[in-house]
Nucleic acid binder design. Structure first.
Lengths: 355, 355
DNA sequence: CTGTTAGCGCTTTCAG
DNA sequence: CTGAAAGCGCTAACAG
């Protein structure tokens, strides 16, 4: 109980709070009373908008401080019909891509004095919709999401809450978005492999209607077309990231269709592929080349490093937050989609195929 | 605008919402009116507590559905003086340890029908305190945090909000906690190295008053004492995880004090150490052995793998959430601290020192 | 510059 | 089983 600038009463309150679980919170009226003003004056002083004499403000700030006043967010939100909360819904925080994205969003939002509220949805449309309802219920100032379905966005927009989709577009209602140029990234990755002489390049993609993966698939096809290399459709393997059988399917692809290179359309699939290759004793890049979409830390740590299409992940988050803040501030132009460029990072996992 | 089960009106509402940003949300009164009942009855029907005739309930549920009613959380919280929100404050979501922790917390909370609200604080006491104020303002049902300082917990408890500290204890007010047995983990790790014959084992720890690192330091000392190996205090290197000079300091330690093994007290420090060793062309385990506290994915992917003290990270989160839910349900026994066991995972990064 | 007044949308007695 | 009434804590007109 020492080393802390708590008044004795406050310390007692803490213990009492623990014991009884009955603390009645300090209200604005309490502060006003302590400072000898009305509640409205107190409100003006503490929220900083409206005229208050310097002395009154002084007294009120002091009283608030002394009493440990914390404004009740629900009362304020109820009155103002909007809050400073911005909801952020991402698929999976354990995936470094989404963690980085959330970090970027958080930076920009807190600089703009919004409160980020993070909600993982495990890429599940049901959870996502529940999350959206929560944010509607909270009267969030806006929501940023990596969409799993269309329903959440539509629910939010219908309720007048601005939405920014990041990483992929799915909405069928008008809303802003920030994405990376998936098509170009995939084209560059595939062209790199084709340029090395690979003719049988497997593509691991997520089996959804997400535009990110659709774009990556298109880029892969384009690169083949541009190089005039015929494409064996059996080399395209649609997968579900979480699925237990994923690595088995990759192994099967390896056995049955003998690709000389693998392009994994995201970091999770790249990791699966890497593990399969390792577990089979196949050596990178001698036996197979590997390129990942999405540059995450382990790709630089393993030996050889993994050639990857790097996304400006943190910037993706920052850009989304910036767009959202503009909307929250009332900007009402037509929907904007920002597209950020990916870049190819060359490492040791790619080389010409064995002769 | 297709493929979605939106009524035409709802779809129009979405577009209108976007254009005008003026949607007036559906209130309970609207639903009641549509169903021909009073607001009180509507409240009882939709919240499911209190008597309502089956028919009335039916009509109300239908009306709510049709109008797209979403209860206003602020009004409800204002009235009930508590919400279903549980705040979770973690240091850094980009650190896999905290992401896993949050995942565990989220699982248990959503099963108990609480809403997790995640807030990263970058191990900064100021941000942490701001977060705590936010949760006081939101009338959160409870808060789970990896404490960076004492102030946040004390603020929360003083306001009657139950707190569970995870990963480390810091509070000077009574609250629950869930930690891993850091002392034992560090003792086991150090004993493992001593057992291999190492006599100069460097310890990389975080320079804070966090109990986690204090425990790990104690375990390291104990192991030396038990083995009767004198300890060169210069081998203990207090570091700040984020600091730019961290890798330089590790390199300096290597040069000046010639350890034959390194014990890194967390996964971030282990990564720094690993990079320093790699960049200097030192080979694991021939030139130096390395043990990390905290088993994260890359440790199994690099070659050789990193011997590590694994924490039951997700379980840590689950346990914390379980404790918190009990408190939120009114349990008022004395503070509980749960201690979970760590385990040693042997990999290739440790071997006897070169002769 | 300050206080009075009137709600925001919901839940909860309390009568019927 | 249902409705009327009151009020949670805050802010925003509007008069002073």
């Amino acid at each position: 109980m020492d080393g802390l600038n708590l008044t004795p009463e406050a310390a007692d309150a803490a213990v009492a709070a623990y014991a009884s679980a009955h603390v009645k919170p300090v209200t604005l009226a309490d502060v006003a009373r302590a400072a000898g003003t009305s509640a409205s004056t107190a409100s003006r002083a503490l929220s900083g908008r409206g005229y208050v004499s310097a002395e009154a403000r002084e007294r009120l700030l002091l009283a608030a401080e002394r009493l440990g006043y914390v404004a009740d967010a629900s009362a304020r939100t109820l009155k103002q019909k909007t809050s400073r909360v911005v909801g952020v819904v991402v698929s999976d925080l354990r995936n470094q891509f989404y963690a980085d994205l959330a970090a970027g969003v958080g930076q920009t939002l807190s600089a703009a004095d919004y409160q980020m509220v993070l909600l993982p949805d495990h890429a599940d449309t049901v959870r996502e919709t529940i999350g959206a309802r929560t944010f509607v219920a909270m009267r969030a100032a806006g929501v940023i999401l990596t969409p799993a379905g269309r329903e959440a966005t539509s629910l939010l927009v219908r309720n007048g809450i601005p939405v920014v989709e990041v990483d992929r577009r799915l909405a069928d209602v008008p809303c802003d978005g920030v994405v990376v140029d998936n098509e170009r990234g995939a084209r560059v990755a595939t062209a790199h492999l084709l340029g090395l002489g690979h003719r049988r390049i497997a593509l691991l993609v997520v089996e959804t209607d997400w535009t990110s993966d659709a774009g990556r698939l298109r880029g892969y096809r384009q690169a083949h077309a541009e190089a005039g290399v015929p494409l064996d459709e059996r080399l395209i393997l649609p997968l579900r990231e979480e699925a237990a059988e994923t690595e088995g399917l990759i192994g099967q692809l390896l056995d049955e269709h003998r690709p000389t290179a693998i392009f994994a359309a995201n970091n999770v699939l790249a990791e699966h592929a890497w593990r399969v290759l390792r577990d089979r004793g196949l050596r990178l890049p001698r036996d197979v080349s590997l390129v990942g979409f999405d540059d995450v830390r382990w790709m630089e740590m393993v030996d050889p490093g993994i050639t990857a299409i790097a996304q400006p992940t943190v910037d993706l988050g920052r850009a989304a937050a910036r767009l959202l803040v503009e909307r929250a501030n009332g900007f009402s132009g037509p929907p904007v989609t920002e597209t950020l460029p990916p870049s190819l990072i060359l490492r040791g996992s790619t080389a010409p195929p064995a002769p």
